[in-house]
Design a protein around this nucleic acid. Structure first.
Length: 225
DNA sequence: ATCTACATAAACAATT
DNA sequence: GAATTGTTTATGTAGA
């Protein structure tokens, strides 16, 4: 199908892309570095504040705590119920629903880049949907709604979202029910077998922000994560 | 030094 | 034909 793909012009030159602007943040890992100032700032800006640990389900493995009896059918992280307990459905969930109060915590003008990878963002968006599936546009909207940074970010992040969806084995697309209305594209879902890894990555992102972060204080000290 | 994960950019085909 | 969606390739950075 792609046999007709022609080599890109970039091969002609040693520098295929435009020089990156001085403010370019590299590969983004810097921004989501384990304990980077950016990551800490972002976590303080984004209202994980509203996430109240109110765990009634088993903690993820390696958390040690077993305050809840582990159901026999949950040997691993396949169960994401620990991500979906009421308001602590997902770390940034409160912002999406109560933007006025939540966004008030964001520094005016320049929200920091979220510390989450695109995979994590997609994961959260999909898991936050009632049907556990979203079209690309729905994922965009969830991200923009949840992270003010992406409202003003250059459009390239959408490309990255699609790139992640397409490249990552963690997500797969399903046919779209056209009776639900018009719209392009497919619905995207999280592969069940990859949920544990995604959840763990998300948990690590939070965990690695250190004890100083709001999230660490409100989440990691709790029994859920 | 190398590998891996990730972000970003871009080309291009398919679909609506 | 335009816009959107999906796939693929390339490249750069940082951490392990």
């Amino acid at each position: 199908m792609f046999g007709t793909r022609v080599p890109r012009v970039c091969y002609v030159t040693s520098s295929p892309r435009e020089p990156r602007p001085s403010g370019f943040q590299g590969n983004g890992r810097r921004a989501q570095g384990r304990d980077s100032p950016d990551a800490r700032r972002a976590l303080q800006e984004y209202p994980v504040l509203g996430w109240k640990p109110s765990c009634t389900c088993p903690p993820p493995p390696n958390q040690g705590s077993s305050h809840c009896p582990a159901p026999s059918d949950q040997d691993d992280l396949t169960c994401l119920s620990w991500l979906h307990q009421g308001t602590n459905l997902l770390p940034i969930q409160p912002l999406a629903r109560t933007s006025s109060t939540a966004v008030a915590t964001v520094a005016p003008g320049a929200p920091g880049k979220p510390p989450f990878s695109f995979s994590s963002l997609i994961f959260m968006a999909i898991e936050d949907s009632p049907e556990k599936s979203l079209p690309v546009q729905g994922i965009y909207e969830w991200i923009v709604r949840s992270f003010p940074y992406y409202r003003s970010a250059p459009g390239g992040w959408r490309n990255s979202v699609r790139h992640n969806l397409s490249l990552s084995k963690s997500f797969h697309r399903t046919g779209r029910d056209r009776s639900q209305g018009p719209g392009k594209g497919s619905l995207w879902r999280v592969c069940p077998e990859h949920r544990p890894a995604l959840a763990e990555a998300l948990r690590k992102t939070q965990h690695c922000q250190g004890p100083g972060s709001v999230l660490a204080g409100s989440v990691l000290s709790g029994p859920v994560l």
